[in-house]
Design a protein around this nucleic acid. Structure first.
Lengths: 145, 145
DNA sequence: TTATATGTTTGTATTATACAAGTATATGAC
DNA sequence: GTCATATACTTGTATAATACAAACATATAA
């Protein structure tokens, strides 16, 4: 059924475009989840998941210019969420790692975000949530290129 | 199984955050889909779907300030994609509608976007695409608040 | 008919971003 | 070993999207 397949893809295109708009807004608005801005949350999450990272790595992860990450990291460092230290094997490299405060902030924020998703999805069955999560993983793989 | 349910929600939170970052990047990068910027695409799509609209309506739809929409609409009007006309029942109101050029651009762009999704999802079964689309619809409903 | 409300535009400030130039360190050729 | 080049990062500058506030035009209601 190529026609139904076409419809399904069209719906995904439509709904994903809508979802991105709404989700980005939600992150910016008063109703935003937690205390951390999205960029900060993602950076802390990356450090938590992958350990100490250099600017170049972060820039590539987020598809942003190194100069942008340089400023972001400095701002987050100034807040005390991350710590800068020199790579002992290469004096040019600044590595960043989470501070205890940063880790606490990340955990708190993650909890709040997950709590919000619990509420939003409270009338979904476990099976539906499971399948949606799995399909999102595949969608993310597809988006890498 | 509350524990598995928890894991499923955590995964959704994680993957959606990732998806938004990747998708927003894809819209900005060289690899961006089609010719229209996301804001323009969404505005044209709204006019196509809901017919002539006033600024206030567009601003609410996109959760943006009216002044922002005022400038966006002027820019899109200058490109010839939309047309401004006065509401005959209320002289304060500017209504906007698609021009023929605007509709053509929208159709072309939508085709390209859908084509890209076809490619990205080519190894998904029809059933998977169908379910994903349905769950996205529900996710979007959940996001409205 | 005048005060107030509504819809839009315009002025201004802020923020996130990219690109380019500059600085510090490392590496490799000789 | 020294110098040219490469790499990692920072800083200067420009741009674009945005919000907020003030201004302006039109409508509504007392």
């Amino acid at each position: 059924m190529p026609k139904e397949n076409q419809k399904a893809v069209e719906r995904i295109e439509y709904e994903l475009t809508t979802l991105i708009r709404r989700a980005v807004y939600l992150d910016i608005s008063d109703k935003k989840i937690g205390h951390l801005e999205r960029a900060v949350y993602l950076l802390l999450r990356h450090l938590d998941e992958f350990g100490p990272s250099r600017l170049k790595e972060l820039a590539e992860t987020f598809n942003l210019d190194i100069s942008t990450l340089s400023r972001q990291a400095s701002a987050i460092e100034a807040k005390g969420y991350i710590l800068r230290f020199s790579d002992p094997t290469d004096g040019r490299v600044s590595l960043f790692k989470l501070t205890e405060l940063g880790r606490e902030k990340l955990i708190t924020d993650k909890k709040m975000r997950i709590e919000r998703y619990h509420t939003m999805l409270e009338d979904w069955s476990y099976e539906e949530k499971k399948v949606f999560g799995e399909l999102l993983v595949r969608m993310n793989e597809a988006l890498i290129d």
